[in-house]
Design a protein around this nucleic acid. Structure first.
Lengths: 211, 211
DNA sequence: CCAATACTATGACATAAGTCAGATTTTGGC
DNA sequence: GCCAAAATCTGACTTATGTCATAGTATTGG
């Protein structure tokens, strides 16, 4: 993006603080802009017919929320809720559309990004349909570590409720808890309150790759 | 697209016929262009760790295969196999890239298309993780009818093997067969060889929406 | 600081769905 | 048309996972 464009986008931005648990936008809303995460983490989920949430994606610093619906000019299909305290900035639709129309490099960048997201979505579909809950749980811990890292004591930086974990994995909360207990008993992970840490990387990876 | 561009793309196209079962491209390949389906249907699947295929998408007339990997400049993550006899045309990468760079409208079109695909992928993820095999089977029949229609006798136009159906739904072939038998017994569908037809729309929709 | 509320944990049980084995039917190549 | 190979179907069984109940444990707001 050129300096001018950067300036224009920057000018049109308004930042907003959100407390953990607050909603950024909800399924079915019409967005007139996108949100850029400056700090904190958001969960993007979709309510299924049976009343359960499925978390499709987590978004943190630098990631954009709502671009799909703005680009496709459709209502949002996901609900975005803050998983931790957050700071987001809002970029109005017009600003996005104009930049898309005038800056081919930006557009290509968005395109590449979407292509990548689409590939990831395919992986999730296969993971969901072909792996056991145990495998998905183990994979989720690696995903969380890769994406958000761990603290000096070896606990995952991103602290999620057991319910959120179960909604990522797509299972009942009780099942998630049971599997956490089992992994703990086997020495694959450790817990401290809500905090979870991987202790036996190799063993846990073995679960992921089990067939 | 302008006439000139259309002509250039048209010139660079080469068409190719494929028999049912033939592979268009395989997971891990590097594509130097995309394929446009002129006739027939292709399944896009991904092999899971346990050796089972998961069909992520079906593509028919007018749809493009391989655009993701060409745009993201990554290896393909899916295998494309002909489900019926097909006719596809190949459009070289250069031609695509050039059009993307010179024609913003085309790029926006691709972008919108991808945004839509991404939304659909989210729906599939939720469907896979939150619905029972029975629900997914019922939903699959509606999907097939919406996408490919039915013949004058009320059978789905697209004829798939039970194995392909199970790979779409993400279940064991035996389970798919069992559920087909059950639906048939309940009068929800009818079968004739491989052919399947919806006979009780309301009843079948009831299964989809069951909770 | 305590009560109210939400979250975590565990047991008992029901059920959905996968696996294995074998029978029957269909299909395609010669 | 015939035979081998592939696909479909059904039964018996096992296992994974969800559901319901209940108890213990944190958190939070007043």
């Amino acid at each position: 993006m050129s300096k001018e464009e950067l300036k224009r986008v920057s000018d049109s931005k308004t930042t907003k603080s959100l407390k953990k648990g607050e909603t950024i936008f909800g399924e079915g809303e019409k967005l007139n802009g996108v949100y850029c995460v400056r700090d904190g983490v958001s969960k993007l989920s979709k309510l299924s017919a049976n009343g359960k949430d499925q978390i499709v994606k987590l978004a943190s610093k630098g990631q954009i929320l709502g671009q799909r619906s703005v680009i496709a000019e459709e209502k949002v299909n996901l609900t975005a809720v803050a998983v931790s305290d957050m700071e987001v900035c809002f970029i109005p639709k017009d600003s996005i559309v104009e930049t898309l129309q005038t800056n081919p490099n930006f557009t290509m960048e968005v395109l590449r990004h979407m292509a990548h997201d689409l590939k990831e979505a395919d992986d999730v579909i296969v993971n969901m349909s072909q792996n056991s809950v145990k495998q998905r749980m183990a994979a989720a811990f690696f995903y969380l570590r890769n994406s958000y890292g761990e603290d000096k004591n070896g606990f995952l930086n991103l602290i999620l409720s057991r319910e959120d974990i179960s909604n990522i994995v797509g299972t009942a909360t009780e099942s998630a808890i049971r599997i956490i207990s089992e992994f703990k008993k086997k020495g694959l992970i450790k817990t401290l309150g809500k905090k979870i840490g991987i202790t036996d990387e190799k063993g846990l990876m073995g679960i992921v790759e089990e067939f």
